[in-house]
């Protein structure tokens, strides 16, 4: 199965991450990676979820996610139509020109250099990060930390725009409820 990436816009409210995590846990969906952060709108956060699912199972995850009241919009980030990046910070045990050469080849940054350790930083696509890691192995990887993937659609269109157009995000869900709405919910 191939990995698939979902971009999910959620309300920036307490408990949203727990709701998403709880959904994945109780329905038995495995997450490959999950990254959450703010967006250009302070009321909205964006999750990037990488899943090892496809076809029907992926549709089902999207449908279940969209059922959560705090989930505003979902879109699959297809590799050909989006930029996907991960961040790697890795502490390597040895120093020297060979290491610098490897870092340079990957466009990685050496952010700290001391006698017995070097910290290397790389922002790249997942497979590039894996390749760097395997090339760093001979130098002795002491510790590494990696973020989940984040993804952005190519071109002028944004996910927020899309959600706004398709789902009327900028408009409140309903108009005026009215004053005499005592029996509003009770048939």
């Amino acid at each position: 199965m191939a990995l698939h990436t979902l971009a999910v816009l959620v309300e920036n409210s307490p408990g949203v991450l727990a709701r998403v995590a709880s959904l994945f846990s109780r329905r038995g969906y495995n997450i490959d990676s999950l990254a959450v952060g703010p967006t250009e709108d302070p009321k909205i956060s964006r999750m990037t979820i990488v899943l090892n699912l496809e076809g029907h199972a992926l549709d089902q995850v999207s449908a279940q996610l969209f059922k959560l009241i705090n989930v505003i919009g979902i879109q699959e980030m297809k590799p050909s139509e989006s930029y996907e990046r991960e961040l790697l910070l890795v502490k390597v045990g040895s120093n020297g020109a060979a290491l610098d050469e490897v870092a340079k080849r990957y466009g990685a940054k050496v952010v700290e250099k001391s006698e017995n350790s070097v910290v290397v930083e790389l922002v790249a696509e997942s497979d590039v990060i894996s390749a760097l890691l395997s090339d760093l192995k001979p130098f002795g990887v002491k510790e590494l930390v990696q973020s989940g993937a984040i993804a952005l659609e190519k071109g002028v269109k944004t996910l927020t725009d899309r959600v706004r157009d398709e789902q009327g995000l900028s408009n409140p869900e309903e108009g005026n409820i009215g004053e005499s709405s005592t029996a509003d919910y009770q048939n």
Binding site: I72, Q167, P172
Partner: peptide, 12 residues
């Protein structure tokens, strides 16, 4: 104040 509008962006 009983709300005149509900803002439930994710509930459609």
């Amino acid at each position: 104040t009983w709300p005149k509008q509900r803002v439930l962006a994710g509930y459609r």
